[in-house]
Design a protein around this nucleic acid. Structure first.
Length: 585
DNA sequence: TAGCGATAGGTCTGTTTCCGA
DNA sequence: GTTCGGAAACAGACCTATCGC
């Protein structure tokens, strides 16, 4: 066995069979099943995200601008688009653990837990703690009790732009959005609270410390020079084992005296833009990338759905080269942080055109990529793969709070630290759409890319062409309408016209709506089903009254076009998982 | 006899490793 | 040598029938 790098403790049990991971802690699949026809697959989130980010959404930045909007959906929150506190959080859902197809996607049924006595769901009840952020209460805060609040959600225009923040002084607890207090209702395994843990994570700042009020993720950190300030973070000694590639870009070395607290830790939320500056992902990664294990060879760099690689650009700054940092983060909408089970992996070779170097910050591998003025401060991320660490290794790590099982979605997180004229540094961060890293999900789950029509009269009968991947001869298209409780109230299978179907196309006849007498447009959903638990993301579909004037129908069509990232005010009952908007063709 | 909880065994699902193109 | 797809092996979770109280 090869020597483990520092991000994996070598003292851990090497046994792959020793996983203590739990499945049922994430969900009771059976109990969710009845409720979550359209909630229970990862794909729905991924493709939804892809749809949002590839269809010219005005909300192109996952990091989003501060300030949520009323009625924002969980998807917005997932991508940092919504900064209000999450209105839907399962009491059995750890913010520190995975966002799986079955836990956060699925509103838990009101029924009791499984009779299975050993369910870790019982072990990991949200019984003891909750992270809350002082001053982070959003006007959109849900009236319902919420066991976990998103620190990202706490970022408001006020807190970010507050002169107090910028000035770095006089920031009371009500203004500082990142100060947290310990309350209740987070599983023990959701937070790193032990001193031991803090000790093994150099670079982590102590929140709630005396000088906390002077810290801000976007604060202008006092650093004494420009370019050198891009490397102020103390690198773990183990990081020395990584070789940097020859590059026209001169890698600066950290200046002595810089402390790990010079820049915000990796698990701190940062804004995507500030003033004139904006860190933007111009090309999002594909929604699937099979990560490789240490026992495997590399599986290559993360690719973009367009065929190239993700592209990141810094807007508003082009004075001199600056470092772009990249690490693998969680897909958790509430708390973006380094992923415990995935690390960025530096790709080298003839096909890699982008220079990079690896460093380790607080046990997390970080790839540093130069943003050069001559490249318009833009970089193609063709040098970054994803490494999967064995669940058993990570879960047994002292102080580790995450569970690896079904925790297979990540985001690529990018950061820059922009030197300011006053010698301080402005830190920005943006995160990609979620990327599914498991082999299985990518292989099995059907994926709807586009569909030909998104509305039809209640009589149905119109022909619809659905295009996508992982379609099977036995695939079904299910139309459904949900009640306010999220339960399907009406479900019917579309009649598939087999003779017109091809591998990546399904042609079907839209079924009639169950109530032909409706006088207003009705929003329903449909999804593709390859079998139990093998369902695509749900897509929105609108039934229009038969007597509706044509011009009104057109309005409906326009307002419910799936590619629109912001729901029409009239659209209701959208589940947390099925914001479904692939592009209508 | 019905209801409930505990348990065992089969099945299903996800993870990890290996192989070969 | 690297990248990649596929699949086997394995472990753990889920489901369900059965039993005892």
């Amino acid at each position: 066995m090869k020597e483990l790098p520092s991000y994996r403790e070598s003292s851990l049990s090497p046994s792959p069979a020793s996983s203590i991971s739990s499945r049922s802690w994430f969900s009771d699949a059976s109990s969710c099943e009845s409720l979550s026809h359209i909630y229970d697959d990862v794909e729905s989130e991924l493709n939804e995200a892809a749809a949002r980010f590839t269809l010219g959404s005005p909300l192109t930045s996952p990091g989003g601008s501060p300030g949520g909007c009323p009625g924002e959906e969980p998807w917005h929150q997932q991508y940092g688009l919504g900064h209000s506190l999450s209105p839907r959080q399962s009491p059995c859902h750890s913010p520190r653990s995975s966002i799986t197809d079955e836990n956060w996607l699925s509103p838990r049924p009101a029924s009791g837990p499984s009779s299975r006595p050993t369910s870790p769901c019982g072990k990991r009840r949200h019984s003891s703690a909750e992270v809350c952020y002082a001053g982070s209460l959003s006007p959109h805060h849900s009236p319902a009790p919420s066991p976990g609040h998103s620190p990202r959600g706490s970022i408001t225009e006020d807190t970010w732009l507050s002169p107090s923040v910028q000035g770095g002084s006089g920031l009371g607890p009500t203004l500082f959005p990142f100060q947290y207090c310990v309350e209740t209702d987070i599983p023990l395994k959701t937070r790193k609270t032990s001193e031991d843990q803090a000790a093994i994570l150099p670079g982590k700042l102590e929140l709630c410390s005396d000088d906390q009020g002077n810290l801000s993720p976007s604060r202008e950190t006092s650093i004494d020079d420009g370019l050198g300030s891009q490397y102020p973070l103390k690198k773990d000694s183990s990081g020395d084992q990584f070789l940097s590639v020859p590059s026209p870009f001169t890698w600066s070395k950290p200046k002595p005296g810089h402390t790990t607290s010079s820049l915000p830790p990796l698990d701190w939320p940062l804004p995507t833009h500030f003033g004139q500056f904006e860190l933007k992902i111009e090309v999002q990664p594909k929604t699937h990338h099979r990560a490789h294990y240490e026992t495997e060879g590399s599986r290559g760099a993360v690719k973009a759905s367009t065929g190239g690689h993700p592209v990141v650009k810094l807007l508003g700054y082009s004075e001199k080269p600056i470092n772009l940092q990249m690490f693998i983060g969680t897909a958790d909408d509430r708390y973006l942080r380094p992923h415990a089970f995935y690390q960025v992996h530096r790709i080298t070779g003839k096909t890699v055109a982008t220079a990079s170097q690896e460093i380790i910050i607080a046990s997390t591998k970080v790839l540093e990529i130069p943003l050069l003025p001559e490249n318009n401060m833009s970089a193609s991320i063709d040098c970054a793969g994803i490494l999967k660490l064995r669940n058993s290794d990570i879960e047994l790590r002292k102080g580790e709070t995450d569970i690896g099982r079904k925790n297979t979605r990540v985001r690529l997180v990018f950061r820059v630290h922009i030197p300011q004229p006053n010698g301080k540094v402005l830190s920005l961060q943006t995160a990609s759409i979620p990327v599914e890293c498991s082999q299985r999900s990518a292989q099995e789950l059907p994926h709807i890319e586009k569909y030909s029509i998104n509305s039809c009269p209640v009589n149905g009968g119109h022909e619809m062409i659905v295009t996508g991947s992982n379609f099977l001869p036995e695939s079904k298209i299910i139309f459904l309408e949900k009640g306010q409780d999220g339960r399907p109230q009406w479900e019917v299978e579309g009649k598939i016209i087999r003779e017109k179907c091809q591998g990546a196309h399904i042609v079907l006849e839209v079924p009639p709506y169950h109530n032909p007498a409706v006088t207003a447009a009705v929003q329903v959903h449909f999804y593709l089903c390859n079998g139990k638990r093998k369902k695509s993301q749900s897509q929105r579909f609108t039934y229009t009254p038969v007597l509706m004037k044509q011009e009104h129908r057109e309005e409906i069509d326009l307002s419910s076009v799936p590619s629109l990232p912001v729901p029409h005010p009239a659209q209701t009952q959208r589940s947390s998982s099925d914001p479904g908007h692939s592009s209508a063709v």
